[in-house]
Design a binder for these strands. Structure first.
Lengths: 189, 189
DNA sequence: ACCTGAACACCGTTCAAGT
DNA sequence: ACCTGAACACCGTTCAAGT
């Protein structure tokens, strides 16, 4: 009689939390097993390899992000308000234990990632950029730039702000950087 | 009679290269030992712990960057030209085997870093920001922002561009993002 | 002064064995 | 269907031993 109704679910929850702090390399099956209350060998029953777990993790993370972004776009089609919601999602990770976007931290480990995980990380970036393109459609892009280039720049800049704030363990650094992005016109505000 | 005149130097060179690709977690004493042609236990003679190696690595990396930046500032005090040189340093890492800035990749692993390495990563960020403040002194900051806030935003944005381009293994993505930063006024160009 | 082999507790993975 | 113990080759680290 297991404590949790669904071991697979419990593994995914613990793994997501750990991965957002320690990355893919820092994710340990033995630590994960302790969190869940099983032996590390048992994790392989649910996820044959660490790469399988990483890929599922990233795919679920993307689906969750997609849902959040769609909900924001449904509340308003104002670029400034949508971007505020967008920035808020990345801010939340920092607030919650100085964590990173799962796919942002994994992008840094790119060379060590199994191919299946690499693909999911790329898909997350695409999802973000596609949503930003939709939002930015009714805003004025920087001179000579199309919406796609603009979207890519915003995605990269927010990821960088998260990374910079994290290594200071200080969310206000994130806020300050975003404010400068807005003042410069990179982010509509 | 060792092949290399200075084993310590050989360890540092190999470690820097590996760390810029695989990060601190992905740095293996046994792989490093193979590169240098000694046994992994021997590395501990030169660097007692992996944290010691990481801290020395980051400190040397910072010193090298400081020299490069000072040289650029000596060639010209034009903000646009200095920033072009700055961007070029980050671009070079991507060109050279899709590598990252050492301290950028380590910032993503922040939670797993020994304290001595954390300090060096923070010092690298400070060095970058201080240099940028000097360069930006004679340029017009985005409305309501001081030079320090502006410098922080540029440092974060360039790091994010490197991260985003790396996970596509495509330097032209970096160039496109930087072009948008320039068009928006975030980076003087 | 510099290097090594052997040991330790870690890691992901496999697999025969349990229920 | 789900879990485990034991084994394997990896990891950083220690240390007595070599030169």
């Amino acid at each position: 009689m297991p404590m949790t109704p669904d071991t697979r679910e419990a593994i995914l929850t613990a793994a997501r939390s750990r991965a957002q702090s320690h990355g893919y390399n820092g994710l340990s099956f033995r630590e994960l097993a302790k969190d869940v209350g099983i032996k590390s060998a048992s994790i392989h029953y649910h996820f044959p390899t660490k790469g399988d777990l990483g890929a599922v993790l990233a795919r679920l993370y993307s689906a969750h992000a997609q849902a959040d972004l769609d909900a924001a776009l449904e509340r308003t089609d104002s670029p400034a308000e949508c971007l505020a919601a967008y920035v808020g999602l990345f801010r939340k990770a920092l607030e919650d234990g100085n964590r990173m976007c799962l796919c942002g931290i994994m992008a840094a480990e790119y060379d060590d990632l199994p191919d299946a995980v690499k693909a999911e990380v790329a898909a997350f970036a695409d999802l973000n950029i596609d949503w930003l393109v939709k939002v930015l459609a009714k805003a004025d892009a920087p001179a000579g730039q199309n919406a796609k280039q603009w979207a890519r720049a915003i995605y990269a800049a927010i990821g960088g702000a998260q990374l910079a704030a994290r290594s200071r363990n200080d969310v206000t650094i994130f806020d300050g950087i975003v404010a400068t992005y807005q003042a410069s016109g990179l982010i509509p505000g």
